[in-house]
Write a protein that binds this DNA or RNA. Structure first.
Length: 528
RNA sequence: GUCCCAAUAGCUCAGCUGGAUAGAGCACUUGAUUCCUAAUCAAGAGGCCGCAGGUUCAAAUCCUGCUUGGGACACCA
């Protein structure tokens, strides 16, 4: 819609034109402050320029009104144009708001260690990633989602140790000395119990069994994570194993050496990441020969870039921000364009319930489980809340808000709007087919406004995706629902003279609500 | 000490690639139902946009400094 308007304007003004939404739809559907920027060049007052421009644009059939107010030019779309576009949208429900982008994108997110269930902090990144993925797909991007599984290294080892000691303590009554960072929480008890059932109590008698426990438990935890994600409708295209990537280590390491990216000092191998903007150089191979975590990430990113995407997006927790520089440095050393990697940081979440704050921690046993919150308020509400805020701000919310069945619960409010439209069709005994060719004539301004807003979805999706600002979509859905409820209250539909016109308008609103909800992973309700 | 994020209504937050009277939801006050779900709607009240400078025709938005809060600064992942 915006493109269409811009192309019309281009015929008259050979400049970059900024089209914006007026604060108040009653000003018009689109507006431009172009005359302010032209004022200097033409040495005329913006108001005069706006007046002249509006006159020349008056005759375009796409507009029924072009008004110059205080230097702004406001455009109001014509009934003909709106009707034509509406009819097309309703006839092409699945293609409405789609686009045809061609960029190939690799999106990596969650990538939580398989050492325990997902907690609420992971959930935010998970929802963000999945929604970005859905929208990108809808807009036509060739996007692949990926989960990097840290199935090597000391955290996995610690998982085995935790289970082993737990078993010794619980089943063999041995007083154990717990290491500082061992994993606590009920799930470790459960794992120890399961291990006893599966391998026998003997397994807790010999320390040599720890690695066996590690690998057994790691697979169980990865499956648990997958099921946590699935409860929220999240599935991945790929899972990449860190352990398997190490097959390519020699090859990657040689490449680093050849590119003078690494050097040996104090018996360790260092990455010269300072050269490319990191604050210091980083160890990648310890003096005992074990690689550090960074080594794994270097192979992984080498692997990613070998697969040739146009863009790589990683969603990381905000606590990883210091990590970006060294990974980008490594990518550059490997001979790739580090600017193709974009890292989105998702900030902390604090959760309230009845005003009580929770502190979370992955290692302690008292973190908030993602699955608990899903059971509590449902996947829809959880997804929605994460998407109403920018990802880079701290978020605090009270779960009780999403249990209410009234307008204080946005999910409820939006679904209700959709359900109302559905019910109108039921009551009128009509289907979309019956009204799809109804001509929209002599529209009142409120009719026009709700229609226009309903048709705005493509622009919203484009903005939300390109700015990685998914709150624009949830905001839009709330507003659109508000339009529906307001219109519903002000107009009797069934049996009215304008029944078909109203139904067509409502059908368009419902289409956008349904499509928008689907993209944030929620199925619109037809009945409350 | 260095770096990142934030600071907007009583609360939770939008708005930030500079533009019209700074918005929404919750909470609060008042009103609307012989009628398609009032599970809704309407109206009201509520603001030194953290502070101080600067750039500009125009600053919540950009720049600089400061204050406050959160986070990161591993040979952990």
């Amino acid at each position: 819609m915006k493109k269409k308007v811009l192309s019309v304007l281009k015929k008259h003004i050979d400049k970059d034109i900024v089209l914006e939404k007026p604060k108040d739809l009653n000003f018009g559907h689109f507006s431009t402050p172009i005359s302010f920027s032209l004022a200097k060049e033409y040495r005329k007052s913006p108001i005069l320029i706006a007046n002249e421009l509006s006159k020349t644009l008056q005759n375009e059939s796409i507009f029924c009104g072009v008004d110059a107010i205080k230097g702004y030019i406001n455009f109001t779309l014509s009934d003909d144009f709106l009707d034509e576009y509406t009819t097309w949208a309703l006839k092409n429900e699945t293609n409405f708001a789609k686009d045809d982008k061609n960029e190939k994108i690799l999106l990596e997110y969650v990538s939580a260690n398989p050492t325990g269930p997902l907690h609420i902090g992971h959930a935010r990144g998970a929802v963000l990633g999945d929604t970005l993925y859905r929208i990108a797909k809808h807009l036509g991007y060739k996007i692949t989602s990926e989960y990097y599984v840290n199935d090597a290294g000391s955290q996995i080892e610690m998982l085995g140790v935790s289970i082993f000691l737990n078993g010794q303590n619980n089943f063999l009554n041995i007083a154990v000395e717990w290491p500082k960072e061992y994993y606590k929480g009920d799930y470790i008890n459960d794992l120890a119990f399961e291990a006893k059932e599966k391998f026998g109590i003997e397994i807790f008698k010999d320390k040599k069994n720890i690695s066996k426990l590690s690998y057994w438990a790691k697979d169980k935890m990865l499956n648990l994570i997958k099921s946590n994600l699935k409860e929220c409708g999240i599935e991945f295209d790929n899972f990449v194993s860190e352990k398997k990537l190490y097959d390519k280590w020699d090859e990657v390491f040689d490449k680093l050496k050849a590119n003078q990216a690494v050097y040996e000092k104090d018996g360790k191998w260092w990455l010269d990441s300072e050269k490319y903007g990191d604050e210091k150089n980083r160890v990648i191979i310890r003096d005992d020969g074990r690689p550090t975590y960074l080594a794994g990430d270097i192979i992984y990113h080498n692997d990613k870039f070998e697969r040739e995407y146009d863009k790589y997006i990683n969603i990381w927790g905000a606590d990883h921000h210091g990590y970006i520089a060294r990974v980008k440095a490594a990518i550059k050393f490997l001979g790739y364009d580090e600017n193709k990697l974009e890292v989105i940081l998702s900030q902390m979440v604090s959760l309230l319930k009845g005003g009580e704050p929770y502190k979370m921690s992955k290692r302690a046993g008292n973190f908030i489980l993602m699955s608990d919150v899903v059971n509590d308020i449902g996947s829809d509400a959880l997804r929605f809340i994460f998407l109403t805020k920018k990802s880079d701000t701290h978020l605090e919310f009270d779960v009780d808000m999403f249990k209410a069945n009234d307008s204080s619960n946005p999910i409820y409010y939006i679904n209700y709007a959709h359900a109302r439209v559905h019910q109108l069709f039921e009551k009128s005994g009509k289907s979309e087919k019956d009204i799809i060719n109804t001509k929209l004539l002599n529209l009142e301004s409120d009719e026009k406004n709700i229609l226009f807003y309903s048709l705005l979805l493509p622009e919203i999706l484009e903005d939300a995706f390109s700015q990685r600002a998914l709150q624009k979509l949830t905001e839009y859905l709330k507003n659109l629902a508000s339009f529906v409820h307001k219109f519903y209250n002000e107009h009797r539909v069934v049996g009215s003279e304008k029944e078909d016109i109203y139904l067509k308008i409502f059908a368009t609103a419902a289409l956008s609500i349904r499509t928008g909800l689907k993209l944030i992973g929620i199925t619109a309700k037809n009945k409350m």
